[in-house]
Design a protein around this nucleic acid. Structure first.
Lengths: 211, 211
DNA sequence: ATACTGTATACTGTATACAGGATACGAAAG
DNA sequence: CTTTCGTATCCTGTATACAGTATACAGTAT
C-alpha cells in the first residue's frame, strides 16, 4: 500500500519547524509566497497549512493582512495551560492501567531529562514525550489528538522560559511523583498530581512572563 | 468600523447548515464544485472551509477522493462528549459568579424548551443556547471557542436522536438543578451536576445508537 | 450471463492568474 | 524638521487553469 500525503502536510510541518526554531519570530509576518518558494510548491497548499496553524493558535490571521506569528503572552499561555491540564487529566483517568514497561520508559525519559544540560529544544521535546508516553494508552483518540495539538502552545513558552532563565528542567520531581502513584495503581492521586504539575508549571511560566 | 469576512467563513456556515439539515446525509460525498456554484464563489474558499470541517470531525477527507460527510457512530459521540463534558465543567468552574439576570435567562430558555413540541432543530438549538448562556462569562476565550467547535458533534447526534425517538426534550430537569445550585452560589454542586448531565446524556444517546 | 479490461469522463489536488486593498516611500506643506 | 497626502509597489484573497488519479461504463472474452 503506497500512501500519498498532501503537500499541505509537508508545509504544515515545515512552518511549525520554523516557528519552533525561532526563524519565524513572534510577531513576524509570514508571507505565503516566501514559504512556497522555500518548499518548491505553490501558494495553495501553503495557505491551507497556514489556515490550519491559525486555527490552532500558532499564527494570527488578520483579514487582508495575512498571517503573523502569534506573540507570546501570559494570558494565552494560562488559557491553553488550563485546558491542557483538564484534558490530560481526563485522558489519564480514562486510560486503562499503565503497564510496568511503560512506567519504566517514563522513568527513562526522566533520567535523560536530568542528564541534559542547557538544550532547551531537547528538554521540551523530552517533556512532551513524557506526557505523550503517559497518555498513549488513552482510548479516546480525539482527545489524544486535541492534546497533541494544544501542546503547540506551551511548547513555545517552555522553550522561551528555559532559554531565558537557563534553568535545566521544569518538572522531573513532579513526573516522579505521578509515576509513583501510578505504580501503586492509585489513579486518583496520579491525576491530582498531574493537575498540580500543570498548576505549578503555568504559575511558574506566568510569573516569569509577567515579570 | 466595517468588517470584511472571508468567503471561507460563509462557505463554512453554509456547509454546516447542509449537514445539520440532513441535505448532506452521513456518508455522502461533498463535491466542492457543487457547493461553489451554490454559493456563487470559486472552489478555493469552499475547499478552505471543507478542510476546516474535516479537521473538526464533521467531514472525512480521503486523499484523492475528496470529502464525505462523517457517519454517525457511537464511539465518536462518546469521545467528543467526554471531552465536552470536561471542558464545560472547566469553563463553569473558572467563571465568575453568574449574575441573577443570566440565571433568569437560563430559566427562560428552559421554559421555551418544554413548550416546544417536536421540532428537533429548535430543541437542539435551544439546548446549545442554554449551555452557551451558562458559560458565556468564562474568561478563557480559547476554551469557549473549543467548546463551540466541539458542540458540532453532539448536535448532530442529538438531532438524530430526537427525530428518531420523537422525544421532546433531553434535559430540562438537569438544567433546572444546575441553575438551582448556581443560585445558591454552590459552584461545586453545579459543576458536578453538569458532569452528571453529560454522563447521562452520553449514555442515553450511546445506548440508543447501539440498539 | 458474468467477469475483466480498456477507455472516457469526472473530480481532486495543485499551480497560476487577477483584482482590490494595504503598506511604504517620497514629495509638498506647515 | 516634522507631518500629511499621494502614488507606486507589494501582498493577500479569490478565481481560473491544468495535470494526474479515480470512477464509471462499455465492449470483449470466457
Amino acid at each position: 500500500m503506497i500512501t500519498r500525503t498532501p503537500l499541505r502536510d509537508h508545509a504544515y510541518q515545515h512552518i511549525l519547524q520554523l516557528v519552533h526554531r525561532g526563524e519565524l519570530a513572534p510577531g513576524a509576518r509570514v508571507k505565503d509566497v516566501t514559504l512556497a518558494v522555500q518548499l518548491g510548491v505553490s501558494r495553495t497548499p501553503v495557505r491551507e497549512a497556514l489556515l490550519q496553524l491559525a486555527r490552532e493558535g500558532v499564527l494570527n490571521a488578520d483579514i487582508g493582512r495575512g498571517f503573523t506569528v502569534r506573540s507570546l503572552d501570559s494570558t494565552e499561555m494560562r488559557e491553553a495551560g488550563a485546558i491542557l491540564s483538564a484534558l490530560e487529566v481526563l485522558a489519564l483517568t480514562s486510560s486503562p492501567e499503565i503497564p510496568g514497561e511503560r512506567l519504566s520508559r517514563l522513568g527513562e525519559i526522566d533520567r535523560q531529562l536530568v542528564s541534559i544540560r542547557g538544550d532547551a529544544d531537547r528538554i521540551v521535546g523530552l517533556e512532551e514525550e513524557w506526557h505523550h508516553t503517559l497518555l498513549i494508552g488513552c482510548p479516546n483518540q480525539r482527545l489524544r489528538g486535541m492534546i497533541s495539538t494544544l501542546w503547540q502552545v506551551p511548547r513555545r513558552y517552555m522553550r522561551a522560559y528555559l532559554r531565558d532563565t537557563g534553568r535545566v528542567t521544569l518538572s522531573t520531581q513532579h513526573h516522579a511523583r505521578i509515576v509513583e502513584a501510578e505504580r501503586r495503581q492509585d489513579r486518583q492521586t496520579a491525576a491530582s498530581r498531574l493537575t498540580h504539575y500543570w498548576t505549578r508549571g503555568i504559575e511558574e511560566l506566568g510569573s516569569w512572563m509577567e515579570r
